[in-house]
Simulated scan of single mutants.
Amino acid sequence: METILLIDDNSDMLDFLSVILGDYYNLHLALNAEVAQNILDKEIIHLIVSDIMMPGIDGLELCKLIKSNVEYCHIPIILLTSKNTYSSHIEGLEVGADAYIQKPFSSELLQVQITNLLKNRSKIKEHFSSSPFEDVRVMAHSKTDEVFLKKLDKYIKDNIKNPNIDIDTLAEHMFMSRTTLYRKVKSISSLSPKELIDITRLKMAAGLIAENEYAIYEISQKVGYSSQSIFTRNFQKYFKMSPTQYYKSLPRA
């Protein structure tokens, strides 16, 4: 079940949102931006619904902060507002909001917006995991995400022959704590850092199989597997076919 962060300084609105969404999602509630930021630092959040008009840091400023922070910028944000002007709508989209809903709104409209945003993210994650040649940056939803994923991918590939890539060292390379790296990677890809490393190994292996220059056992060693049987099992798990079947499925010139 996905987790949604609801932000509104009106407790009645939070109660209303909790009633219409509570049966379908895990919910975290925040009465202001400061509380919301504390939750973001501790939890894996899949989507944010925030009011715009709040004291202190308002919804627009919070949206801008989140979308410029590498730790959270992948999280889709729906902004709620009572302003009924074209300029306010544009302003919401300019700070990076993924959707903008005017109050009062129907519960069905909000639910559909949430479902569509989460479903689109899920499809992209599944496509990346199951497609041998899909680049990790397909999961990027912003330039900040793209830079993060490119740097992460390069480190893994540079150390691909090492069967035991150290997650703490990887986190240090990304200028994050181990916990923050886990939360970021899990949220953006639905994979743990270890699983992402495994998929990167297998995608590189798929490329080597297509080149047809090495035996399967050599390829497994080149991408950091000490056991060919584990390599074959993992390849089958993610790509739904064995390395040999994959080679036979490739088009011939």
Rank of each mutant, 00 (worst) to 15 (best):
L80T: 05
E108L: 09
L5R: 02
N84S: 13
L196K: 00
A205W: 03
I209C: 15
S192P: 10
E146W: 02
Y25T: 02
T115V: 02
I167W: 01
I165Q: 11
E61Q: 14
S226D: 15
D135T: 05
L202V: 08
A253P: 07
S18G: 15
Q228P: 05
P243A: 12
S187L: 02
T85P: 06
F148E: 08
S142V: 02
G56N: 06
I90H: 06
I4E: 05
K42N: 15
T115W: 14
F16V: 13
L110W: 14
L110Y: 12
L14A: 06
I77G: 05
M176H: 04
H173R: 01
L110D: 13
V35A: 07
V138D: 00
M13K: 01
T115K: 14
K83Y: 15
S82C: 09
Q102I: 15
S190C: 09
H141I: 09
L110C: 12
L17P: 08
D166S: 09
L181F: 12
K83F: 15
K240C: 07
I48R: 05
I230G: 00
M54T: 06
N164R: 09
D51G: 07
D168C: 04
Y225K: 05
S189M: 03
F16H: 07
I101W: 03
G207Y: 07
F133D: 10
A33C: 10
E211D: 11
S131K: 06
I160G: 01
S130W: 02
K123W: 01
L208H: 04
A99Q: 08
G59T: 07
T200F: 00
H127D: 15
K194P: 00
E43N: 03
L191T: 02
L152K: 04
R178E: 14
K119C: 13
K248V: 15
I216T: 09
N116P: 00
F175E: 13
L17F: 03
N164K: 11
L117M: 08
L109T: 11
A205F: 05
Y214H: 15
G224H: 08
K67A: 14
Y238M: 07
L17V: 05
D98Y: 11
P243W: 00
I4C: 04
E94S: 14
E172K: 04
I75K: 02
Q113S: 11
I7R: 01
N234M: 13
L202S: 07
L27H: 03
E34G: 02
S220W: 08
M139Y: 06
K157A: 10
K42A: 15
N164D: 13
I52K: 06
L196C: 04
A206V: 04
D9K: 01
K103V: 14
N116C: 10
D153V: 02
L14W: 12
A253N: 09
V35P: 00
P251F: 07
L60N: 07
M53K: 13
T200M: 05
F231V: 10
L65S: 11
L196Q: 01
